[in-house]
Write a protein that binds this DNA or RNA. Structure first.
Lengths: 335, 335
DNA sequence: ATGAAAGCGCTAACAC
DNA sequence: GTGTTAGCGCTTTCAT
């Protein structure tokens, strides 16, 4: 293995000078720099990342904690985050939390190992009760929900407003018996309950009462459970004519479930989701959705983290917060 | 920061003993071990991973190079690989190669930085011409295609056989004018050309001539291009009554394209894909596919890599190779 | 503009 | 079963 010493010897300088060249420090004569660069090329020298890490305390890698990387929404988010991180010369390691509080706490615990320079954590299981656990001196950005008051950076979706707009969109299209297919209510203030609030707001504004028979909670936000929920509400005799699904994944499942129940989308029942995953444009019928601008969220989250990294050791700054914009994407499923 | 020395002092032993305890070395008196563990707990000690890396030359992280993590197939593969790696206490960092030869070469180049202990690379752009570039002394597993003769481990799909079975399935269901929607032919022996071969074999076995008008190459294996291709072949007057799509993603797009062209699936045209991504079970109609057993492939790839890691420094072993099994998943799209 | 010294925290090799 | 020594490759500090 070629070390910085070998390069120094070959270039007739000290290891320090080689280090200066590698790290683009200014005070190196250009003639010296050229000699060093030549030696680096000749010997095919590569910095030993582990040694640099030990010395600098940085690893050049950030962690990304998501429920499961194979869910389309998180895959698309991860793709954007990896690209944004690359612009800052940061690598991204993926942790799968399994959408559980325990998994998310495990991801948090990693921070203490200083395996990564920072962590972007997409929470769905943690709640306000866990605020204290987030009070760690470690660069971290919580992604997805805005549920903690603690001094931690957030990049959030416009959950309530987006859900209200989605529901209002169905109402505009003539729906009056709108089902809400969302996560089972828990004690945590999570994505489902925020979108649940938006649904209720839109109904109230339109003067439509909430019918409990149209509230269909599911245990997991999967296509499978979305399909089962749609079938259940179709056959319940509640007279459903629209469905707001808490995520696109659930919505795609729901469209499948309605088809199985003999309901046509959008003629018999209109369906809208949330997230605007890429697949939604290609389903039959194509899926209307709320687009929270993934790329903007991903870029902002990485930007927040990079700022935190730069601030390490300095006085703690106030928590940054960003709530993404959204737009209603009307496609065939609400046509 | 608490170091191993601090723990040693607190426990009244040497740093070496603490190290032995941490690394589960056998020859430590259980009474001593207990004292050390107590000190670790009391001080909330964490190993400094960077220091350990420098000393051992291992990082505990492997790289996974995929075209794009937001494509369902790669997301599902990555999820399995992360789980399999976790069983060996390995973290996974994701590199996106953009499905280009350059991106894949970049991922390969990372090996020289020794940033990861090894690399699992899902190739779609590299070809036999790049064999020499793979002759590096670095633990690596090529995933997805079996196209190199070099001394590098492979985990491959049954591409030709799977494609033949998919096409044969369409023929069984009565199709005679079967379109092939696959990647544009290049010089590389890539996934498309292998599945192309399988398609031709099945037609030959059934005595059906290949009609060039039914061969629809696309530039990128996306839903968008799948949709465009389906529309094109529908409107070409070639009388298509079936379509084998090189991936499920393309097939989902193709079903959309057929719908846009006024063709009903499966009544007017039957469609089958390849990969059996989770979404295929929930499309309307649900998508028939070839299931190459992702979990088995992922587990085998990680297993190969772990074996290579264990062999580092020893004599080079012969390249391992594994070709996954497959099954035909018949759903509504070929009903 | 360049370099000498020191040491980041850990563990392999060996001694006892 | 436990401890001593040495050093992994790099960069911070400070000197010149």
């Amino acid at each position: 293995m070629v070390t910085i010493q070998d390069v120094a010897k070959a270039a007739g300088v000290s290891a320090m000078t080689v280090s200066h060249v590698i790290n683009h420090h200014p005070h190196v004569r250009s003639e010296t720099r050229a000699r060093v660069l030549q030696a680096i090329t000749d010997l095919d020298y590569r910095v030993n990342v582990a040694a640099r890490n030990l010395r600098t305390g940085r690893t050049g890698t950030i962690g990304l904690g998501v429920p499961e990387i194979d869910r389309p929404y998180y895959g698309q988010l991860a793709a954007e985050i990896i690209k944004a991180a690359a612009r800052h010369n940061l690598k991204v390691a993926i942790e799968q939390t399994g959408a559980s509080r325990e998994g998310e706490l495990d991801a948090l615990a990693l921070s203490r190992n200083r395996l990564y320079d920072g962590l972007i954590l997409s929470t769905v299981g943690l709640g306000p009760a866990d605020t204290d656990l987030l009070k760690i001196d470690y660069p971290m950005v919580i992604l997805g929900e805005r549920i903690f008051d603690g001094p931690v950076d957030h990049v959030a979706m416009p959950n309530v407003e987006g859900a209200r707009a989605a529901t209002a969109h169905l109402i505009e299209r003539g729906c009056r018996r709108i089902a809400l297919i969302d996560g089972a209510p828990g004690e945590e203030v999570d994505v489902s309950s925020l979108r649940h609030d938006g649904y209720r707001e839109a109904l109230r504004e339109a003067g439509i009462p909430v019918d409990p028979r149209l509230l269909v909670p599911i245990g997991e936000l999967t296509m499978e459970q979305g399909a089962a929920a749609a079938q259940r509400v179709s056959e319940s005799g509640a007279g459903v004519d629209g469905a707001f699904c808490v995520t696109d994944t659930v919505a795609i499942g729901a469209m499948r479930g309605f088809a199985d129940a003999g309901m046509r989308v959008p003629q018999d029942v209109r369906v809208i989701g949330f997230d605007n995953i890429a697949e939604g444009a290609y389903t039959v019928p194509s899926l209307s959705s709320i687009d929270p601008d993934h790329a903007l969220m991903a870029g902002t989250a990485v930007g927040f983290l990079v700022k935190r990294l730069a601030e390490m050791g300095k006085n703690k700054q106030v928590a940054r917060e960003f709530i993404s914009r959204f737009s209603v994407v009307a496609r065939e499923s609400t046509g």
